[in-house]
Design a protein around this nucleic acid. Sequence first.
DNA 1: GTCTATATTGTGATAGAC
DNA 2: GTCTATCACAATATAGAC
Lengths: 202, 202
Amino acid sequence: MDELNSSTEQKIFDAAEAVFIKNGMEGARMKEIADIAGINKALLHYYYRNKEQLFMAVFQNAVDQFIPNIYNLLISELSLFDKIRAFLEQYGKILMKKQFLPLFILHEINRKPDKLVHTITSKGIQPQMLKNQINEEVRAGSIKPIEPRQLIVNLLSLCIFPIAGRPMFQRILFDNDADAYESFLHERMHSTADFIINAIKK
Amino acid sequence: MDELNSSTEQKIFDAAEAVFIKNGMEGARMKEIADIAGINKALLHYYYRNKEQLFMAVFQNAVDQFIPNIYNLLISELSLFDKIRAFLEQYGKILMKKQFLPLFILHEINRKPDKLVHTITSKGIQPQMLKNQINEEVRAGSIKPIEPRQLIVNLLSLCIFPIAGRPMFQRILFDNDADAYESFLHERMHSTADFIINAIKK
DNA sequence: GTCTATATTGTGATAGAC
DNA sequence: GTCTATCACAATATAGAC
């Protein structure tokens, strides 16, 4: 019913999102987008002047979802362990619902870094606060020595790559059983925090 | 000097590898491949009938490098911890030299799974042996309880994603300093094994 | 084996009627 | 706003000379 009520522009955007994410900017066809949106090719150009602008709208939206607003979490008074738990809980849910985001964004950034970086950097990520907190915990002796960025990359890798690498993992390890892999990802949402905490706690 | 001595077919393959990996199958242009190989477009079709076959040659080669032959490691008598250390050491070196492999392969598999899976499954990965060993160590009480595939995915995530996600990490966390990121990856080759082992040891 | 020239098709984009 | 018809060009692929 969302379909029926939504504006033509929205239908175009939704169709474009599906097609760009499935095939990438280069592999996407304006014809296919128009077909899925249930309108004509010419109308795409009426709303979005050209393919590039349509792509950028989709891409920026994808980045906005992929890099969530965790400023409140970062500045909270939670302990490091609780922040890790809270982040995995919140971000895990987002990624489970938008599993295509990581691969799409990484591929496109890789293809045209200079053109697309600003969509990321402009989001104003501030890892400094988290780095400070990690350093303090190391100095206080409450966790094992670790370079903050190593921990951050570990955290993000464990959280994102099982989804980005799904096309591979699901086939190699799960006999291409989609339901089994879905359960596997769900299970991770609870177990990954413990894995990380065990790795760094003294 | 490799360039000078290599056959035309090899020069074409090398050029194709560079272009396909940079732009993907859909983004690659036969013209660019010919230019880089220093020959004419028509000659591409003489050696490889069409773009598809040229791509498949490059892709299969990429998969063969990406999924290394670790059968000997898997069946070795090493303890689980030593296997983890050995794997990270060996595979880390491969990935450091071919950093483009993960993203390229994942993107293409994602684009056309049905067409490209066989290039992976035919390699006959056998995780069963490793799964058994992990289960035994859990039962023996020498490591914390963990589902074997969770550990395997953790291991691969920590090893592959820092490279697949480099375009993102390097800019967000390292101010786009390539040398600094290279050092960061090198440091990981030593620290990641300890991270994992700490996470699972009792 | 390697080239030039060309055929053929696909695709993004525009013109213009309604 | 939405459509049909069409342009212009890019890209794969082939023909054929050398």
